[in-house]
């Protein structure tokens, strides 16, 4: 076999774009962290100097003390919300993905169901939540359904776009190779939808927590949402603040998890 020898002209520009220098990376972390610390310090000072009552606005130190002191209570309310958020995330996104696949394969299904999906999406989640609590009762199911519902629409829209993102040229390639419909789906449409899917999943990772908490507001004995309502009505501001921080910590955790998985899966 004759190898066609070439001067390897193009190899010069390698792809290992050098990592940012250590000091650059350090500054990237240090600036936002420093800003946050400064804001917290201002908050602490402000509350102390103006002698704001704790039940109106607690100082960060009060919140931290409450977080430490009421840790078992916070955790007892954290797990149900985590469970509802993750289950809702899985259910809502899975439903959206499957329906998107159905839409892409049949224009009829899309014509029949897309307007309904749009309609459901236009109902504010706060308005639909009581209805779902009436239907599913005060247990976890209603919260899971609300979390699922809030995830559903962005994923549906993005997934449909992703599955249709295959270039006409790629489809011509598929035809020249006489690929079947299922081969086109598995080897071309599905992989090319992944970047779109992940940008939707990142939205869903934070909104599913909102869904679960809104559900808990309407009616629940346990969960971060219930604790928010409880501590508000009992004027336990430090506990309220601690709960809010824990909720946003949960969102950040889910978002980070999805982002890490995205980095591993979508390498192109």
């Amino acid at each position: 076999m004759a190898t066609v020898d070439l001067p390897l002209d193009e190899e010069a520009q390698e792809h290992n774009s050098s990592f940012p220098l250590f000091s650059e990376r350090f500054m990237k972390v240090a600036i936002p962290v420093g800003t946050a610390v400064a804001l917290i310090a201002i908050w602490q000072l402000g509350v102390r100097i103006f002698e704001v009552p704790t039940y109106i606005a607690p100082a960060p130190s009060d919140v931290a003390a409450e977080f430490y002191g009421e840790f078992p209570l916070l955790m007892r309310n954290f797990w149900p919300t985590l469970y509802e958020s993750i289950t809702g995330f899985v259910v809502g996104n899975l439903a959206a993905i499957l329906i998107a696949i159905a839409f892409v394969h049949s224009k009829g299904v899309e014509k029949a169901f897309f307007p309904i999906a749009v309609f459901i999406n236009t109902i504010p989640i706060l308005a639909i939540a009581p209805i779902l609590v009436l239907i599913f009762g005060a247990g976890m199911t209603a919260k899971v359904v609300i979390a699922a519902l809030i995830c559903f629409f962005p994923t549906l829209v993005n997934m449909v776009r992703g599955l249709q993102a295959v270039t006409p040229q790629t489809l011509e390639l598929a035809r020249i190779l006489s690929a079947s419909k299922s081969e086109i789906f598995w080897k071309m449409r599905l992989p090319s939808s992944l970047p779109f899917l992940f940008s939707a999943l990142k939205i869903a990772a934070t909104t599913c927590v909102i869904g679960a908490i809104v559900g808990e507001w309407i009616g629940a004995d346990l969960g971060l949402g219930a604790l928010i309502i409880d501590s508000t009505f009992n004027f336990r501001a430090p506990l309220l603040y601690a709960t809010v921080f824990l909720s946003s910590g949960l969102s950040v955790f889910l978002f980070t998890t999805v982002s890490v998985i995205e980095k591993l899966v979508v390498r192109w």
């Binding site: 270039t167 040229q169 790629t170 390639l173 071309m188 090319s192 192109w268």
Partner: peptide, 8 residues
């Protein structure tokens, strides 16, 4: 004209 490779 464009290589039409599958990017993944």
């Amino acid at each position: 004209q464009d290589a039409t490779l599958l990017p993944w």
